Simulated scan of single mutants.
Amino acid sequence: MVPPLIELTGATKRFPSGSGSVHTAVRDLTMTVQPGEFVAVVGPTGCGKSTTLSLVSGLQPPSAGRVRVNGEDVKSIPDGVGYMFQTDAVMPWRSVLENVASGPRFRGVPKAEARAQAVDWIARVGLAGFEKYYPHQLSGGMRKRVALAQTLVTKPKILLMDEPFSALDVQTRALMQDELLRLWSGSGAAVIFVTHDLDEAIALADKVVVLTTGPATVKDVFEIPLERPRKVEELRLTEDFRKLYADIWESLRSEVDKAREKGASNVA
């Protein structure tokens, strides 16, 4: 049996709060991700989904428990990790070409080779001809394509994605979901994809992890036995998709209700 590429065992993360108390974001979080596996993480707003990515990326150390990547405890940013954030991480003062080439250049790739890799990935994400454009000249969907190329050009073994398409309109979002699946297919990269959108989670993932209301822990794990390759909009019309949605929503709904009640009581 292949050992997990990513393994969280009883992982807990606490932060000091502004009032001098301690806020626990995630508690006793245990989950695994295999090489090449696409895992979507869903849960109520503010439950600790992004904190989970921070633990895997090494941006935050666990307060308790263990986080391991490739069999090693995570003590800093592991090699081969790509991170795509909710907000654009493109540099506004650099062209599309310069943005995408920046990752290889940072890793010591010679300038000419880095630019050649960038040109290749710009074409792969459908932006050939836009190499000299700047981010302010692009639409939101085009900037997301730049960010995707910027992340994938380094050939990450682990791809961490924190609601990367949430700000896009419905049509552009569906296009980007299909684009992600096309580019990820055959790459061998393991993906942890955080989203509030259950449709998105099911359409993309091999399994969906449902987190409880904060402090988050794993409530349920659902395998997604839908065949690949997938076309997102076509998939959503199938009976298998609707059945999976109903089953996962049944688990998620109670946590969303708890989070809503908790928020209402805090306001009161």
Rank of each mutant, 00 (worst) to 15 (best):
A118T: 03
S265G: 01
L8G: 04
P215Y: 04
A116T: 13
V256Q: 13
Q60L: 03
K132R: 03
G43F: 00
G263V: 02
L183Q: 04
A118N: 00
T212A: 09
D28P: 01
D197M: 04
R242V: 15
K258R: 14
K231T: 13
A205L: 05
P104M: 12
I77V: 11
A101G: 09
Q60H: 03
G18E: 09
S54C: 14
G80N: 04
L237G: 04
V191C: 09
W93D: 03
R14P: 06
S102P: 08
S166Y: 07
A64D: 05
E179L: 15
M31R: 04
L226T: 10
R143E: 04
T12H: 12
M91K: 05
V56A: 01
L180S: 07
R173H: 07
V119E: 00
W93K: 04
G126L: 06
G71K: 05
P62R: 01
V42F: 09
Q60E: 12
G129N: 02
D197C: 03
G126D: 03
G186T: 12
R105Q: 06
P135D: 03
E113A: 15
G36C: 12
R253V: 12
L180Y: 05
L235V: 12
K243Q: 13
A205W: 01
E233V: 13
A149H: 04
L127K: 05
K157E: 07
V194G: 01
V232C: 02
V221T: 15
R14M: 10
L152K: 04
D257R: 15
M142G: 08
D88M: 06
D120H: 02
G80F: 08
R182S: 15
V221G: 10
E113H: 11
A112I: 14
H196I: 05
L55N: 00
G129V: 13
P92N: 07
K49V: 11
Q137V: 05
Q177M: 12
D199T: 06
D162V: 10
D73C: 11
V67D: 00
E163M: 04
Q171Y: 06
T212E: 10
P225E: 06
D169S: 12
G82S: 07
P62C: 06
L175F: 14
P229M: 14
A101W: 01
R107T: 09
A40C: 14
Q137G: 06
L59V: 13
N70I: 14
P92C: 07
L59K: 00
W93C: 02
Y83L: 11
D88C: 13
Q34F: 10
K144S: 09
A201M: 08
K132W: 00
W121Q: 01
E98R: 14
T32H: 01
A116K: 14
L168S: 08
V221F: 12
P4M: 08
L204A: 08
M84P: 01
K262C: 00
L237C: 07
S254Y: 03
A189C: 05
P78K: 06
P225H: 10
Q137H: 09
H136V: 13
G141T: 11
M176Q: 08
R66I: 04
T32D: 09
T195G: 02
V96P: 00
L148F: 11
D220N: 15
T151V: 15
G186V: 11
P61R: 09
A205K: 06
V109E: 08
L175Y: 10
